[in-house]
Design a binder for these strands. Structure first.
Lengths: 159, 159
DNA sequence: CAATACAGTTAGCCTTTGCTAAGTTATTTA
DNA sequence: TAAATAACTTAGCAAAGGCTAACTGTATTG
């Protein structure tokens, strides 16, 4: 009896009822795996950009401190960022973003800001909003970002 | 931190937020790293639960198909889930959730449903909502979940 | 200007999560 | 029921992202 009961033809009211078609399902997970590949890179690049803006320079020790990670880990990661053409530096000196790195940093920062602002507008407390935004920002599509921005603009900050 | 915009309807994106204190900043990243450690486990457990409900049993081949991953990967992962006491099975037979696994599956499923419903209520298209929900669900705190649920209830699903 | 402290790098290890290829067990079917 | 097919497991590899310990370079300062 191989009658593998494939997907229900129509999605019912309560979503808990139907599994998406396998192929679509697989794509969802693939999208998440994909996001994971770039999100750490984006976090580093975003942080480096922020440090340059706010502290004048980006030093490995500060990155390690803020990321809550060892300096060795930062060193290795910076090597990866350099090999990807996102960061430039001379040995033992502080870090700079390439053109491409700048672009990534700007986009990350904007996305981060939109999500953070949105969560606050939704009525989430500041501390929680910061934590959740950090995790969510890499998994939010442009379409959802647009919806968030629309909502924040419309609602502003709740009373 | 300084400029939590309580008055400004929408703070401009170019306006650079000050950096949070290092310690708090590190905690944010730690929270994300922490979420990453459990989210794959949760995805597997949730999927296993869904397969049992919708197809009567959870087989490795189906999991591999739906996760978009090789069977070998599933086999290894299932070993981990078993060693964590979330899944039970006999060799070469299909999978079951332990009590603990059931609990995790239920919680994941609920969280997933809340996020998905919320995104739709926000006006995001179905396909996008599915993809984003899959990525976001593991990074959403209880406080934010509550806010999302409030919003969905209040606004309902737009037709 | 030498000693010390601080910052950055390198080497070597571990775990997780992927893969392919090859082997084992279960099921179907000729 | 034997052969073929499908499902599952195991072995061995790789890349990412952590770590500590040891080393090299830079900066301070007595």
């Amino acid at each position: 009896m191989i009658d593998t009961p494939d997907e229900a033809p129509f999605p019912s009211l309560s979503e808990a009822d139907a599994l998406p078609p396998s192929e679509q399902h697989a794509q969802q997970y693939a999208a998440v795996r994909n996001a994971h590949e770039t999100e750490l890179l984006e976090d580093y690049v975003e942080l480096i950009g922020d440090l340059i803006v706010h502290q004048g320079e980006a030093r490995s020790a500060d990155i390690a401190l803020r990321m809550g990670v060892s300096q060795a880990t930062v060193s290795k990661m910076v090597g990866r960022l350099k090999s990807l053409g996102l960061v430039a530096s001379k040995p033992y000196r502080s870090l700079f973003l390439t053109e491409e790195g700048e672009t990534m940093a700007r986009m990350s920062r904007e996305r981060h800001a939109i999500v953070l602002q949105f969560l606050r507008a939704l009525g989430v407390s500041d501390d929680t909003a910061r934590i959740d935004a950090e995790g969510m920002e890499h998994h939010v599509s442009q379409e959802t970002l647009d919806a968030m921005q629309r909502f924040s603009r419309q609602r502003g900050i709740p009373d």
